[in-house]
Computed example of a mutant assay.
Amino acid sequence: MNPRNHAQVAVITGAATGLGAAIARHLAQKQVKLALLDIDEKGLQKIKKELPEDCAIHTVDVTDENQVRKTVQKVESHFGSIDILINSAGITGQTNIQSHQVQEEDLQRVFDINFKGSWLMSKYILPGMIQRDYGRILHIASIAGKEGNAGMLAYSASKAAVIGMTKVQGKEYAETGITVNALAPAVIRTDMVAKLPQEQVTYMTDKIPMKRCGTLDELANMAGFIVSPENSFATGFCFDLSGGRATY
């Protein structure tokens, strides 16, 4: 399939705010048709007003396999196909605590949203991509998944799992016309980061050689390239967006 012969269709999770919303705005400018998913119905309604009329929104809990399966079916039925999947839904969970203070319930919730949700979305979207011999999947990971952030065990470990999944899927589908990559930002100025304790944010930004947070525009621009038809030879890779913190 030549992806340039038709308008691209992208599914973005966690699209109501933050990274997901920024990527949605960017792709809309590239004439990509959008299906935006989030558990925040009001947030989805708000972002939809900024985007083309054909943008579809779906309120869904990405940790619920039945909801994910039905939502993917609705999107495929509406648009005919899905070319791009961007897994941006994520939470930090409890932060600024040491590992022995982590509660099992919080650990499980963070893993369910950050890792399981990304896996479920890819599980149900990949078969259509395989059938069409084309697809772009981007899992939003984190520098915490590469290096580990003290005080953020659940988040760091869940994002490390996302990176591991990316490497596996990149190899599994390398001969199908599908690329699977991850993006590991350092601190990006979002509402989620704004809610973190200041000492946690300071700990993270102090490790960045540029000594600043990344911007949503910088992230959206890189994400847009990763899921574009032009990025056809990079797969199973974790792209860096860390202001020099990670150079490997």
Results as ranks from 00 to 15, higher is better:
S158K: 00
L107K: 03
A16I: 05
T17L: 13
A10R: 09
A28P: 03
V227Q: 02
V193T: 09
G135F: 01
D240W: 00
C55A: 14
I84M: 08
A24T: 07
A10F: 04
H58W: 05
T71L: 08
E199N: 13
I188H: 02
D38I: 09
S88H: 03
D112H: 09
I130G: 13
G224S: 07
G20C: 07
T13M: 12
L51A: 08
P185G: 14
R189Q: 14
G128I: 13
I86S: 09
D106P: 04
I178W: 05
T17E: 12
Q103G: 15
L183T: 05
M165R: 06
G145I: 10
L107G: 02
T179A: 14
S232M: 08
K167F: 06
G236R: 09
S118G: 14
G135M: 07
D54S: 13
I23Y: 02
P185N: 10
H78G: 07
Y124H: 15
H6I: 03
A56P: 01
G243F: 07
D217C: 12
N231P: 11
K49I: 03
R212Q: 10
V32K: 08
A16T: 04
S232A: 15
N2M: 06
A160C: 02
T247Y: 01
S77F: 01
L34K: 04
M165A: 13
A220F: 00
K195E: 13
C55S: 14
L120C: 04
F233K: 10
G80I: 07
I188Q: 05
G145W: 05
G145K: 08
E218A: 09
R132T: 11
I12L: 15
I86M: 06
Q67M: 11
K207L: 15
N114I: 09
D61M: 03
K70V: 10
Y203I: 03
K42I: 01
D38L: 11
Q169V: 03
N114E: 08
G14I: 10
G14Y: 04
A246C: 13
V187I: 12
A220N: 08
V162G: 00
M210L: 15
N66L: 13
F225L: 12
Q29E: 13
Q29R: 15
D206N: 15
A186N: 07
S122R: 04
V168Y: 10
K49D: 11
C213D: 13
I143Q: 15
K123E: 05
L196Y: 01
P3V: 10
Q108S: 14
V75T: 10
I12H: 05
D38A: 11
I12E: 10
G170A: 14
I143E: 15
I130D: 09
F79H: 06
G170M: 12
G170D: 06
Q31C: 12
I208G: 11
T205I: 15
T202W: 00
A174L: 12
F111H: 08
F79Q: 04
K167S: 10
A182W: 02
V168P: 03
T215L: 03
L107C: 11
C238M: 03
S242M: 02
